[in-house]
Amino acid sequence: MKLTYPTTLVLQALAHRYHYGFDIMDATGLPSGTVYPILRRIDREALVSSRWESETEAHRAQRPLRRYYELTAAGERLLAESLSRYRALHEIVPRARRKIRPTRRPVTP
């Protein structure tokens, strides 16, 4: 599939353990109208898997249920390939990380 720069950014954010839609926006700086269609697309292409997190997990963290996205093996491979093309990615994500802390990885139900 064609890997645009924003798509690569989203994959990179996922690889850096940003697993939720809004967190990915924070990490990448991309607007919601860009991030969600990308998520839909890479979901169709099986580059990520998505599921609803378990109620227990949400309950423990005292917050609403969220939809959880995770890179698949195919997604990780593709990201590794494209990272060589977009050098700047290495700089963006660590910088963005200073702004917001990634959430803990949820317990798989």
Binding site: M25, S32, T34, V35, R40
Partner: peptide, 14 residues
Amino acid sequence: LRRSMGSVVDASWL
């Protein structure tokens, strides 16, 4: 609010 507006793009895309 601005982020919520982006849902239009998401919905149209789907």
